[in-house]
Nucleic acid binder design. Structure first.
Length: 139
DNA sequence: GCCAACGTTGGC
DNA sequence: GCCAACGTTGGC
């Protein structure tokens, strides 16, 4: 199973908003970047991802799961854009801040550090395990 | 709110 | 196919 990282501005659609959607989840629409779209195309139902708050918060707050594979983005007629659906799984006991990630040598190669503008990113198995540990939950 | 970094667009 | 101009993102 692959692991991912989804970025969202909490002022627009944060972790609490995703939790409120329950098991139905939410369409991860609005992505207009090829790399991010390609990452979503590569996802399978059941894949897990970190949920990161950008712009404000700047921390990973929980884990979400892919609950529908890539399908056309309902917010545009442009058929280039696709998205998956995601649902909240569980919050971190301790959110893991960007500052923590940037100072941990085990996480130096994370896409979040290397290419902070990519909104849907792959996460390696090692990174996944390290961050779950820092977040105080089981991987 | 600013601005650096990045991706996309479009004229040539 | 290059690259300047532009728009957007996101950390600070």
């Amino acid at each position: 199973m692959a692991h991912w990282l989804f970025k969202s501005e909490p002022d627009v659609f944060g972790w609490d908003d995703l939790v409120a959607k329950g098991d139905a989840g939410e369409e991860w629409d609005g992505v207009r970047n090829y790399q991010a779209r390609n990452n979503m195309r590569a996802m399978a139902v059941g894949d897990l991802g970190f949920y990161y708050h950008s712009r404000s918060g700047l921390e990973i707050v929980g884990i979400c799961a892919v609950c529908a594979e890539a399908h056309p983005d309902s917010t545009t007629d442009d058929d280039r854009w696709e998205c998956v659906d995601v649902k909240a799984v569980k919050p971190f006991a301790t959110p893991v801040s960007l500052e923590t990630i940037k100072t941990d040598p085990r996480l130096a190669e994370m896409v979040l550090v290397k290419n902070s503008r990519l909104s849907v990113q792959p996460v390696t198995e090692t990174e996944w395990a390290v961050i779950c540990d820092l977040g105080g939950i089981k991987a």
